[in-house]
């Protein structure tokens, strides 16, 4: 095997998942599959940050409940989110009595958490790990863009941060859905500076990881039923297909993007959804369900993240991006 792809010999299993999504998100494809559909995106809290934290807590609790394990059986929590100093994840971890590893990969956090959890279990250090992440439109908007009530127009390349959280319990044995390998991403920067065009910034990172993964595992794209990118949106999806095509790999037949499919009606979302919660909720609800029912057998989850901050973009820096890939296979 190659340098950057890890194959898990002991095949860690995804036991169960827990998901929660906001009112706008549940109107789309994931609506039928989420564990809880919120009517009110504040989740009964007085700030959006608290709501995001509570949603993440809910997803973790629900994943544990669905796994039939007790909370005391869980050895570790691997989680992160988009807010500064990953406050949602660390504040959610207050409520749990197991150790916490905070990770940050922007919107790629879900696959990063899966890859690290699977590696820790495969090596035999831990038996049961919960991996989760989430995001909230209103808290992300306030951190990265303008106040909510300000009357500005959104450019057509922009995406809409998904209000959702999702988590999964991963264990050494106990289900037929396995994490079989992971490819850690390189930070790729093609020089895109437009913070409203994340899809174009992130597509080269996704392309780099997908190509390395296929090359190092010596497989064709057809090996997978689906190659699922995180939140490239409609434009980014088109670009990633073009970029891989240029390198002689055709993923157009089995590529989908969580951001592109999550919203049913495009009004203000333009290119689709984004945010850490996007791939987290789509994978842990809809795709996990398809794996469980056997409709899908092999998935490559490639969540992509834009590693910028408001300071870096203010200083005119371009947007470095990353994508981590995990292959999830049913046996």
């Amino acid at each position: 095997m190659g340098l950057h792809t890890v194959t898990f010999k002991n095949k860690p299993c995804i036991i169960s998942t827990g998901t929660i999504a906001g009112p706008k998100e549940v109107q789309g494809i994931i609506g039928k599959y989420v564990d809880m559909a919120l009517q009110d995106d504040t989740f009964g809290e007085d700030t959006y940050e608290k709501a995001e934290c509570k949603m993440l807590s809910y997803a973790i609790n629900r994943a544990i409940e669905n796994s039939k394990f007790k909370r005391a059986d869980i050895d570790l929590m691997v989680s992160g989110d988009l807010l500064n100093q990953i406050i949602s994840a660390s504040f959610a971890a207050r409520d749990f009595d197991f150790p916490f590893v905070g990770v940050y990969g922007a919107c790629s956090t879900m696959s990063e958490a899966f890859a690290l959890s699977a590696a820790l279990i495969d090596a035999g250090y831990f038996k049961r790990i919960v991996a989760a992440t989430g995001s909230h439109f209103s808290s992300a908007e306030r951190q990265y863009r303008y106040p909510l009530e300000q009357g500005t127009t959104r450019p057509p390349q922009s995406q809409w941060t998904v209000t959702a959280a999702g988590g999964a319990v991963i264990a050494d044995k106990g289900s037929n859905i396995h994490i079989t390998s992971a490819t850690f991403g390189k930070v790729v920067d093609f020089g895109v500076t437009d913070v409203n065009n994340m899809g174009a910034a992130m597509a080269p990172a996704a392309c780099s990881t997908i190509l390395r993964h296929l090359q190092e595992r010596k497989i064709e794209p057809e090996y997978y039923d689906l190659i699922v990118t995180g939140d490239l949106g409609a434009l980014g999806s088109r670009i990633v297909k073009d970029l891989t095509w240029e390198k002689g790999v055709d993923i157009s037949a089995n590529h989908i993007d969580c951001g592109e499919i999550i919203y049913k009606v495009i009004e203000d979302e333009f290119q689709g959804g984004s945010g850490a919660g996007c791939s987290a909720v789509v994978f842990n609800s809809y795709l996990h369900n398809e794996l469980k029912s056997g409709k899908l057998k092999k998935i490559l989850l490639v969540a992509t993240g834009a590693l910028l901050s408001t300071v870096s973009s203010g200083q005119g820096e371009s947007i470095p991006c990353i994508a981590h890939a995990v292959s999830i296979e049913r046996e």
Binding site: P156, Q157, D189, F190, N197, R238, P320
Partner: peptide
């Protein structure tokens, strides 16, 4: 690569991305 080394950026890619800009 930081903003100081912009000459290394893939200008072809940026032109390609700009070609998608909706009118």
């Amino acid at each position: 690569m930081t903003g100081k080394h912009k000459e290394n950026f893939n200008q072809n890619y940026l032109n390609y991305v700009n070609s998608f800009d909706p009118p």
